[in-house]
């Protein structure tokens, strides 16, 4: 695997080795090795069906890989479950955000982790206060933490979803198409938020089709194609044309994909 990232000294937050996954006779992932580091925004790019979503589902414990292993905190796992992943600090901001629309922002941020007082009552005041603090820290501005999230804009909802990931003690946050179906200024705000998470020391994994967005926030760009990780760039060492070349497979390099391009 070519790797010009030069991160040998640092210990990755999560290390994937030889991850394979097929659905029936369709091979979704064909031996992926990937290291994701804290304090770094890593973008995973690739065409539709390249295996990006399968990979993040394996990382978040939703899918079990057929082969390979994941290492975190010095431990090695054959597979994770959603609750195990949360326990290990991996949280995923899903495309559909998985928010409870009719509940307010504070209730969503603390969903499953509500603080109690007198062992019975949910401590709503504390939830509101801590939600406000957290959103302020993330520079997400919403009308009020007691507003049902169905009244919030796409970017604000994304902010609430991120705040919830952090409340779940997430140390690694994965985004699946965070700027899909979002306006220009809205996207800019979300990208800024993602970038700031990297700067705060979180390990950030972003899946996106939008190379412009990817180049504006990522430290590293990994290209996945036909279930294999074909290139791992430092962002400063590459350009969009080169990345597109690897995504589509027109940019050949030593080794791995000879056959397709000859016939194409």
């Amino acid at each position: 695997m070519s790797n010009d990232a030069g991160q040998e000294k640092r210990i990755p937050y999560i290390r994937l080795r030889n991850i394979k996954k097929s659905f029936g006779h369709v091979i979704a992932l064909d031996g992926v090795d990937l290291d994701i580091y804290s304090g770094e925004v890593m973008a995973l790019v690739g065409d539709n069906g390249a295996g990006k979503s399968t990979l993040i589902k394996i990382i978040s414990g939703v899918l079990n890989p057929d082969e390979g292993e994941l290492s975190l905190n010095g431990k090695t796992f054959k597979h994770l479950t959603p609750s195990k992943a949360i326990e290990l600090g991996i949280s995923t901001v899903y495309q559909d955000l998985a928010l409870v629309d009719c509940r307010d922002a504070a209730s969503n941020i603390f969903l499953g982790r509500e603080p109690l007082k007198a062992a019975f009552f949910v401590d709503k005041k504390r939830m509101n206060r801590e939600s406000e603090e957290l959103l302020r820290r993330l520079k997400v501005s919403i009308p009020s933490v007691t507003t049902p999230v169905e009244f919030l804009s796409g970017g604000q909802r994304q902010g609430v979803a991120v705040a919830r990931s952090i409340k779940l003690q997430g140390r690694m946050i994965t985004f699946d198409e965070p700027t899909a179906a979002m306006g220009v200024s809205e996207s800019a705000r979300v990208l800024k938020l993602i970038r700031s998470l990297g700067d705060e020391g979180f390990a950030v994994l972003v899946i996106s089709h939008n190379l412009h967005h990817v180049f504006s926030i990522a430290d590293r760009i990994c290209v996945i194609r036909n279930g294999r990780l074909v290139k791992d760039f430092r962002t400063e060492n590459t350009n969009p044309d080169q990345v597109v070349g690897f995504i589509t497979g027109s940019n050949r390099y030593s080794g791995e994909y000879k056959e397709e391009n000859i016939t194409a």
Binding site: V100, C102, R103, G112
Partner: peptide, 15 residues
């Protein structure tokens, strides 16, 4: 209420 609002969100929160 969360069950009625979005069951999947509750499940993904580990409940």
């Amino acid at each position: 209420l969360a069950l009625g609002g979005n069951e999947e969100a509750l499940r993904r929160s580990g409940v």
